[in-house]
């Protein structure tokens, strides 16, 4: 995601999906996330800069990402970089750990996005992509 001064301007990045709330399988210990309200079946997301404590873990700055502070309950509008369908997602967790994946890139039709800056719940991810793909390039705005 490129730093920009206008927080409403669209930005690009990479997203994956994660489970939270009541769940089955290896997810069953996931809990309701940093905000206490995260659920896999709702259109929720995890953002790397929800608080100082969150930022200290996710460290998007190590990948050159200057992400704005957005706290629990903030709504983003997200679309697959190669599609027009845009969905609203609400921040309910801290994540992903951006610094683990610095430089990771995903593309569609010649358009690419770099750095994992957002995680979506299965409900949100599957609304704009397929769960069997681990990562997806996105455009997002506030």
């Amino acid at each position: 995601m490129t730093p920009n001064s206008d927080p409403r301007a669209p930005a690009t990045g990479e997203t994956s999906w994660f489970c939270c709330g009541n769940a089955w399988g290896p997810c069953d210990t996931a809990g309701h996330g940093a905000c206490g309200t995260c659920n896999s079946g709702s259109r929720h997301c995890a953002w790397p800069n929800t608080s100082d404590a969150c930022y200290a873990i996710t460290r998007p700055d190590k990948c050159g990402e200057d992400l704005l502070r957005r706290t629990c309950g903030h709504t983003f509008y997200v679309r697959n970089l190669c599609r027009t369908t845009e969905i609203a997602v609400k921040i309910t967790d801290c994540g992903p750990q951006t610094d683990l994946w610095c430089g990771e890139k995903s593309c569609c039709s010649g358009k690419c996005a770099t750095n994992r800056i957002l995680d979506l719940t299965p409900a949100a991810y599957s609304a704009i992509g397929n769960l069997s793909s681990g990562v997806m390039p996105i455009a997002m705005r506030s």
Binding site: A23, S42, H44, T85, V89, K90, P122, A123, S126, A127
Partner: peptide
């Protein structure tokens, strides 16, 4: 296909 969905509520077109 994108009908507005309230992010606070469970997505009606999704099941887990």
């Amino acid at each position: 296909p994108a009908t507005p969905i309230d992010p606070d509520a469970p997505d009606p077109n999704f099941a887990e």
